[in-house]
Design a protein around this nucleic acid. Structure first.
Lengths: 347, 347
DNA sequence: CGAGTCACTCAAAGCGCTTTGGATAACTCA
DNA sequence: TGAGTTATCCAAAGCGCTTTGAGTGACTCG
């Protein structure tokens, strides 16, 4: 059942039917009702492609995942983020499409998207410190929102980001207040923007207390459980091991904890741990009482926020770049406590 | 730059240009080269919507994620699966779109998809034991592939699935061979098909040795770390606790391990653990030496396989339903050992 | 040498929708 | 009463592509 047929059934022109369906004013209420109910009973649904061709609107949002290599770690955050964004899209009738942009080929893929193409807007995931994608998207004139930021990218663009710097500064402050002086940082991959910012917050906080960050206490890597384990193992084997560790993800924090226990130490007593918690639905930080002390910010929520922002941008292209900085809550769990030195003093 | 303009530049008809571009034989090699190079230099890209309208092909695959509630746990497997499928799609020029099908509203969403609509085919994720989606998709005549199966669904459909039954039977056998007699099963959510099959394999294996499955040793739930912890805690507190535990996911296995250690026991000695491992890229089971003994099957690989199967089905609609049962490798790690009874005997 | 092939190429119709630029009839108001 | 509005509706022109059905030379062959 297409427009033409429906119009014939109703003995009306396609124009009138189209207008009735799309809520244009130049249709009498009587005919509109008639059209609407006919559309209902015949279960008419406009062909999105034809509509798109005619209007130039695709009613679809592209999610762009930069990938340097095929085998790159899939971001564990991704599923939750997308679920959040998906809620918003379905409510507004938008489709959602996934694009993997391999660094070399992405130019082509993006151009495909853009040329009044398959998507009305895009969301960029996991940007690097200097994400070349952003420049290209800006040139292309496609509305887009970045989940995260790209520190070295100077041009304006819209983003939704967690306050990584502040979160890690607060976590570091918290540990310093507990008397810890040697604090390890098991961070995300070197080139990622969020990792950059987290390190910034951590180092700022240390410097603010007159401590100079020790490169030995810092590591970068893909945040697997094994990476957390190995990094912590290395840290604990140092001549002067840290009494507290900051982990960039709950997954690697699980590895950190394992390393602590394997070393015969107790987490929260011998070694304190704070992790960032993306509030992933399948990796709750102890449903009842929190195991880890964390800086928490829901990725799903960030997905929702990003989608809403993007749709706003699409609705009104004149809008200046929007930004949204999500705070992270510092919630205290069982993985932190006073530094051993402080503990001795108290005893 | 569109076809018309490109044709004008070349002083050819749109027909010829279109044919040259799409590899039809009735174009001389000379003109084809000319067209191709012009397309190259002017960076011409056909408008996918127009192409779709004209051909009836959308060049897009829908991934359907059944959801009963907004807040349902997002499947942690999803990101990896989608990455695998995405590789195949991009290689073949297909787009990938995500659809969340809330049980009540999905009828409409699916119909949208189907009516020669936005997608040429679909992949259904995480089916329940009786997934009503499948019936609807079959009626609709849209090619689709299910990741997993739907036991109660009798009509034919194509699927790619891990051999859940066999994997869990083998794991159980392995534990039985080690002398374990009380084996716990910390399974996935009750209604999910894979959980159903895993339990089947586990119980079959027990029965084959004359043991009757003890309902007390079995639990169902969403596979978070916390769920693994609580379930294991409960099991270990039984009057006659299990000496071995089967976990349905590495994430909950981490919880199981924590519970074992919190109870003052040692994994692999006092309590053996086997987990299923979906080989997720961000949750490696010990990059160097495996921590857990697992039944492993790569979800990413399943994604690739599913996508390939679907494209085959789209290319040749006459094909009968295809199936692909992926084996799971039983790899021995440090989390299993002889049962305490056997250990004593040996001593 | 004329009919039949072959190798290329083209004009135009069509995919299903929106939108422009009228048309028509019914009303208004001086 | 006749010009100016207003409220409805319509025919037809796109949107950018594929594909059908024909046309045009050049070439083969009996």
């Amino acid at each position: 059942m297409n427009l033409k047929e429906l119009a014939q059934m109703l003995e009306l022109s396609q124009t009138t039917v189209s207008r009735a369906l799309n809520g244009y004013p130049e249709v009498s209420e009587a005919t509109r009702r008639r059209v609407l109910s006919a559309a209902q009973t015949y279960d008419y649904r406009p062909n999105p492609r034809a509509k798109g061709l005619a209007t130039g609107q695709a009613m679809a949002i592209a999610h762009i995942i930069p990938m340097t290599s095929r085998d790159e770690i899939v971001n564990p955050i991704f599923a939750d983020f997308v679920a959040g964004a998906g809620e918003v899209y379905t409510a507004r009738g938008y489709d959602m499409m996934l694009t993997f942009a391999a660094d070399d080929k992405d130019a082509a893929a993006l151009r495909d998207l853009v040329r009044k193409g398959s998507a009305d807007g895009a969301i960029v995931h996991a940007p690097r410190i200097d994400e070349s994608l952003l420049g290209r998207l800006n040139e292309a004139g496609l509305p887009f929102v970045v989940h995260g930021r790209s520190s070295d990218h100077e041009a304006g663009y819209s983003w939704v980001d967690m306050d990584n710097r502040r979160a890690f500064a607060r976590a570091t402050d918290f540990l310093l207040d507990l008397g810890h002086r040697r604090i390890g940082l098991i961070n995300g991959p070197e080139g990622m923007d969020f990792a950059h910012r987290r390190r910034g917050g951590y180092e700022d906080s240390l410097r603010a207390r007159g401590l100079s960050p020790d490169p030995e206490l810092r590591s970068h890597g893909v945040m697997t459980e094994g990476y957390g384990y190995r990094s912590a193992e290395t840290l604990l084997a140092l001549a002067e091991p840290p009494t507290a560790i900051l982990a960039s993800s709950l997954i690697s924090a699980l590895g950190v904890r394992r390393a602590i226990e394997d070393a015969g130490l107790r987490m929260g007593q011998d070694v304190s741990v704070i992790s960032h918690d993306d509030d992933l639905s399948y990796l709750r930080n102890g449903e009842e009482s929190p195991i880890f002390t964390t800086t928490r910010s829901s990725v799903r929520d960030a997905g929702r926020k990003s989608a809403e922002m993007l749709l706003r941008l699409i609705d009104d292209p004149a809008l200046p770049p929007q930004t949204c900085l999500l705070p992270a809550a510092l919630t205290v769990g069982g993985s932190t406590g006073p530094s051993p030195a402080l503990r001795q003093l108290e005893a």
